[in-house]
């Protein structure tokens, strides 16, 4: 089972989403693109764990998913103009 082409296609996906972060327009669109990148990075970390046979990458992926969720919620709260 070769995982290298899979990770290359995932990197291409992340690159396309990064282009949307730079183009914009406006904060909500950039936030959507950023959330997409977070999901793709979590998936890529799981693939990398299988590729290099290191379990610690999956743990990193779990923590990354939860922390990026908190980041999304806080940036969304900031965009809608609430006080913290």
């Amino acid at each position: 089972m070769t995982w290298l082409p899979v990770i290359i296609v995932m990197l291409v996906c992340i690159g396309i989403a990064v282009a949307r972060v730079f183009i914009g327009p406006g904060a909500p669109t950039r936030l959507v693109a950023f959330d997409t990148i977070n999901t793709l990075v979590v998936t890529s970390l799981v693939i990398l764990a299988m590729m290099f046979d290191h379990v610690i990458f999956v743990d990193v992926a779990i923590v990354y998913a939860l922390l990026s969720f908190a980041m999304t919620l806080y940036v969304a709260k900031y965009i809608q103009g609430d006080k913290f």
Binding site: D35, F69, A76
Partner: peptide, 10 residues
């Protein structure tokens, strides 16, 4: 849940 939060904020 994150999608819901983003749509509402937007």
């Amino acid at each position: 849940t994150g999608a819901h939060a983003m749509a509402r904020a937007a």
